[in-house]
């Protein structure tokens, strides 16, 4: 490689010198030609210059050939270099992501454990019943949080191993939604949020797996709470659209920057993924939600305005008595 590079350098020099001389000679001759002399006479008049020209032309060709080769080589090298840099960047970001996954997962699992253990320790030395109740409530909340995180990880492991087998049944949505919303009551009260549900009186049953629908709702409502401002509100609405039922969860929270909207359903993607992240979470929730909704034959979408709030909508097919899958339309 090194020899070739030198070769290229010499080729450039040889090409420049030989072409320089040739063009000088040609120019000189051209001037003479204009004074009315024939080509043959010319050569006769200055045999040295003529011979030099003839000798130099092949040199120019050869060096030109090597020069082009060298240029092509350089372009290729440049490209390879760029590709390598890109690959390196990609690997580095994968590595960074892996690190942030490890620290996110350990943060999300160990924080509630720490809270529960410390509260236990303090509760054991506490005599005042009121404080005791407070510690117990704290332990309960920590265990709920831990359980949710473990569920998320297990669900992810299941999906990763291609083991997302859904058992479809007719599901009546309103009680499922009420039940999931109720699970979040302590968090909702703590943040002084208001949850409204907008549901029609008559609702068709949907075709889905009850537990998985709960999982989707838990993730969306959990996010709506987590990313909401204190005193904000959350609206859960259900609407029938032909063969599908559309469920939307809107919040009045911090929203998502438009350039990050396409990525939020990616695994381990977090809008703010720095190690100093603000909102915690493992970064798997929405990826799982998307997989589950699609496995139901539904779709999920998001609209958001930074500072105003986000609105996540997903669809589930209406249950048909004949057991057939509802077709889109």
């Amino acid at each position: 490689m090194k020899a070739e590079r030198h070769c290229g350098r010499y080729a450039i020099i040889a090409f420049l010198i030989s072409s320089g001389i040739i063009f000088n000679l040609l120019y000189w001759r051209f001037e003479r030609l204009q004074h009315g002399m024939g080509l043959y006479e010319h050569f006769m008049m200055s045999p040295v210059a003529g011979t030099l020209t003839i000798l130099l032309i092949p040199l120019m060709c050869i060096s030109g050939y090597y020069m082009l080769k060298e240029l092509r080589l350089r372009i290729k090298l440049e490209e390879a270099n760029r590709e390598l840099t890109e690959m390196y960047q990609e690997l580095k970001s994968v590595d960074e992501m892996r690190n942030s996954i490890i620290s996110n997962v350990s943060h999300e699992l160990k924080t509630p454990v720490t809270i529960a253990l410390n509260a236990c320790e303090l509760a054991l030395e506490e005599n005042d019943p009121e404080s005791l109740r407070e510690f117990l409530a704290m332990i309960r909340e920590a265990l709920h949080r831990l359980n949710m995180n473990i569920d998320t990880l297990l669900e992810y492991a299941k999906i990763q191993s291609g083991d997302l087998k859904l058992r479809f049944e007719p599901v009546n949505l309103p009680p499922v939604i009420q039940k999931v919303a109720k699970e979040f009551r302590p968090m909702v009260m703590k943040k002084k949020l208001e949850i409204h549900t907008e549901m029609p009186h008559v609702m068709p049953l949907v075709r889905g797996s009850r537990e998985h629908i709960k999982l989707v709702l838990r993730n969306l409502i959990g996010n709506a709470i987590k990313f909401n401002f204190e005193g904000g509100s959350i609206v859960i609405s259900v609407k029938e659209h032909g063969n599908f039922v559309e469920i939307c969860v809107s919040d009045t929270g911090i929203g998502i920057p438009p350039e990050k909207l396409d990525r939020i359903f990616e695994r381990f993607y977090q809008v703010d993924s720095s190690s100093t992240r603000r909102h915690g979470g493992i970064g798997l929730g929405l990826a799982i939600v998307k997989d589950v909704v699609q496995a139901h034959g539904g779709e999920i979408s998001v609209e958001s305005e930074p500072g105003k709030g986000s609105r996540f909508c997903f669809t589930l097919p209406v249950w048909r008595e004949d057991g057939g899958e509802a077709s889109a339309g």
């Binding site: 924080t111 720490t114 809270i115 410390n118 509260a119 320790e121 303090l122 030395e125 704290m138 909340e141 920590a142 603000r278």
Partner: peptide, 16 residues
Amino acid sequence: DDEPQIRMLTRAMLEK
């Protein structure tokens, strides 16, 4: 600490 509960519990331990 940014976790309010950790803050509260750790504080209680230290004050004890």
